[in-house]
């Protein structure tokens, strides 16, 4: 679709497909990183169920819902920008990208409000009791090593 000559590929179509594949490989590598983080979250959730249940009472359902809707809408405007760019409608593309940026800023503002409220109510992490069972477990990795 770009007017420029490709250096590395015979045809623009082939270059586009290579670009596409590389982007998915990149996303796959991101999934590896975030997969490990989600795994840590899952293991903590399994080990510290009551603490997670207590902490979840501090979460705001309306704010969380609004922020998820903001994220979904920004995904939509981003996909819209991609579609418009393929149709070379640049002005509309820029408007869709601007909307995506504005929604990103909106997301951060809501996050700021959420964390501000939690700090105000002294609800941030590490304030919830960890059961003694965890500390006593012989093969519980971090605690037994650090002591």
């Amino acid at each position: 679709m770009s007017g420029t000559e490709s250096v590395a590929f015979d045809t623009p179509r082939r270059e586009r497909r290579a670009d596409n594949l590389a982007m998915w490989v990149f996303i796959g590598s991101e999934a590896m990183l975030f997969g490990a983080i989600f795994l840590i979250f899952l293991v903590a959730h399994i080990d510290l169920g009551p603490a997670f249940a207590a902490a979840s009472k501090c979460l705001s359902l309306p704010l969380g819902t609004v922020n998820t809707a903001v994220l979904i809408t920004s995904s939509f405007t981003m996909a819209l920008a991609h579609m418009l760019a393929l149709h070379r409608r640049w002005r509309a593309t820029i408007q869709a990208l601007a909307a995506t940026s504005a929604l990103g800023a909106c997301f951060l503002v809501v996050k700021g409000i959420e964390y501000g409220k939690k700090a105000w109510r002294r609800c941030l992490a590490f304030r919830f009791a960890i059961p003694d069972r965890i500390r006593l477990m012989p093969n519980s990795s971090s605690t037994s090593i650090s002591r």
Partner: peptide
Amino acid sequence: GTLPRLAVGAAGLWLVILFGLT
């Protein structure tokens, strides 16, 4: 396309190994 789906499937496979073995 086959190749992008294969790449995503490979990522999924490694996630299954990561979560499963842990």
